[in-house]
Structure formats: structure tokens, C-alpha cells
Design a protein around this nucleic acid. Sequence first.
DNA 1: GCTAAGTTGTACCGATCAGTACAAGTAAGG
DNA 2: CCTTACTTGTACTGATCGGTACAACTTAGC
Lengths: 188, 188
Amino acid sequence: MTERSGSLAALAEVFREHGFEGTSLTTISKATGLGKGSLYNFFPGGKDEMMAAVLDDIDRWFEEAVFTPLEAADEPGPAIMAMMQAVTAYFQSGGRVCLVGWLGLGSSREAFADRVNGYFARWIATLAHCLQTGRVPAPRARSLAQEAVSGIQGAIVLSRALDDTRLFVRIVEKLESELLAVVARGES
Amino acid sequence: MTERSGSLAALAEVFREHGFEGTSLTTISKATGLGKGSLYNFFPGGKDEMMAAVLDDIDRWFEEAVFTPLEAADEPGPAIMAMMQAVTAYFQSGGRVCLVGWLGLGSSREAFADRVNGYFARWIATLAHCLQTGRVPAPRARSLAQEAVSGIQGAIVLSRALDDTRLFVRIVEKLESELLAVVARGES
DNA sequence: GCTAAGTTGTACCGATCAGTACAAGTAAGG
DNA sequence: CCTTACTTGTACTGATCGGTACAACTTAGC
């Protein structure tokens, strides 16, 4: 079980680099250092189960580092700043792809639709909740949260395409300052 | 030649659905109705050349429907509105993926890096140019253009993930109104 | 109607795909 | 030491991969 979870990081990285369809078992084997035997021993369900395990791991990380802090925060400003910092580090300033967002683009989407949907829905919900603690009305908070999450995804796509991590940082800072302005103003 | 260009639409659609790595010649053959013989007759370079032809087609469309109007506009407001309308129709309110943005995520990126980079660079440049005609200073125009293009890409990712085309429309409208507000204000 | 050029289907290539089978290896418990 | 359970590498399967070869076919010019 420890070997399985130990390989999750490498597994995630290789999926992020090649996508689901583009990742072969040979690639996975090389990346994790595990032979096919071990791979199918730990993940009897094959590639699908490997991706599912990776998604579990991602969920766990975001739950702990992003979602829970957003929900638990009693003041929105610092929580928003912490979220943006965590996200920037996680996505390596746009150098690292959002696997969940990517999955949503492809035809493998159907297989993981619930996971993909849940990830973004929870992100938006917790961020909106955080904004509401700053006296932002619920509908507005929800819209702002959607725009922020959408904006982060766009920053990943664009900064990857232009190979410019500074662009990611700048856009995310802009998104942050917009949110901070709203909560600082007390209400909208 | 007419058969080749006639198959480009189907080719583009199947690439959009499965990505580059996820699209097999069998899939392409079915989607276009052409056998392998015809496929390699029209595209001797194989899958790479097919994707290149699709990207050419996309470039052509955007050049005509988006970039040139942005550059030729003497008034930014209507040009921005026209761009957003064209883009919303093209991406089918987020139901359709941006193939170029997708390519930038994957490892097949390297093969098409210049195309991907050029596409977004030109989009940003023409939009920034358009904003400058509305007396927006060059650096600000560039930043706003980057944010708008990034925002559109994010809207595609998020609306696909949540399977909600209204979300795409709403976010794009928001982006539009922000740009319009800037140019209406005369200056920043 | 003959030729030449372009088009198409089909059979095939070696490589690689995801996945299976299983024997050999390892380690822990008693 | 022996068993039992887990782990691992290797060899293999049939299917499919991208790509090639080529013969059959259509079409157009003359």
C-alpha cells in the first residue's frame, strides 16, 4: 500500500505530461520504476484505476490545502491570498497542467465526468462560501468564484501555450486583487 | 484538392474530440469517410500533416473572422463585441474545445509549439491593437488583451468540465463588458 | 478506345498497445 | 525451516497502432 501511494506522484506527473490517452503502460512503467507485474498488482483495474487513484490524490491535496482552508476561514482576505499562493505553487506558475481541467476537454471525459465536475464544483462552492463571509451576497459570490476558477484555468492554458510563467503569475495576481477589492469594499 | 479541404472540417472535429494522441487513423478514416489510401494520398505526411492542415484551416478562419476585423476596426467597441460573438459561435458556447489551446497542454506541444504560440500571440496582438485605437495605452492594452484571451480559454475549460454552456456565455459577457468599460472610459 | 494521372480499397508491415499468466523472488509468522 | 502471502520480472496474448505497397478503379485528354 505504501509502494502504491509512493508511486502516485510519478503517476500523476506522467499523466499530466501526456494526458490520459497519450500515456502508455510502458511510459508509466518507466516513470514509476515499476514493472507491469507490480503495476497490475497495485492497480488491478489498469490505466483507469491508476488515473482514479491519481484523481483521489489530487482531491485529497486540494481538500486539505485549498478547500478546507477556504471553508474554515473567518476572514476572506487572507484565505484568498493563501489560496492563490497555494495554487500558484501547485501549478508551478502555469508550468504544470491542471490534470482535471485537461480531462474535461477530452473524450475520456465521460469516464471521469463526475470527478471532474465535482472538483470544480467544490472549488467554486468553497470559494463562494469564503466570499460570503466577507459579506458578499450569495449570487455575486458564486459568480465571482466561477470567474476566478475559470480565470486560473485560462491562465494555465495561455501561459503554457506562450511558455511564459510570468504571465500566469500576473493574471493570477490580477484575479486575486479583484477578489480582494470586492471583500475589502465590504459588500458589492 | 477539393476533397482534401472538404475533409478538413471532419478532421478538425475528430481532433477536437479526441486530441492529437487520442485520435487514431481508424477514427479519422471513419470520421472523414476516406480510406487509408486516400488519407495518405492527400496527406503524405500522415497524422502530423493532417493536424498541420487543420491548424492552417483554423488560422485562416481566425485571421478572417477575428484578427483582421480587430486590426481594421476604427472603433474598438463594436469590434470587441463582434469578436466575442464570433468566438462564442465558433466555440459553440464552450461546447467545442479550442484545439490550439489543447495542443499547448500536451507533450505533442513541442511539435506544434510555434503554431500554438503564434495563434495566441496574434490574437493578443490584434486585440491589444484594437484597444489602443480606443486610446488605451499600449502596456495596459496588452495586459487587457492577455487577460481576455486567457479568460476565454478558461471559460472553455470550466464550462466543459461543468457541462454548462450558459456559464461560458456569462463569463464571456463579463469579459466583454470589462473591455467595453475600459474603452468607453476613453482612457484607463 | 487508349493512355496517363489521380484516386481508392485492401492487404500487409513491424511496433506498440493494454492486459494476462505465471514462475521466481522476497519477506514475515510461527 | 517451512509455510503463506505478497511482490516482481518476463514472456506472452490478441488487438490496434501509424504507415506502406500496390493493384483495381475512375476520370480526363486526346
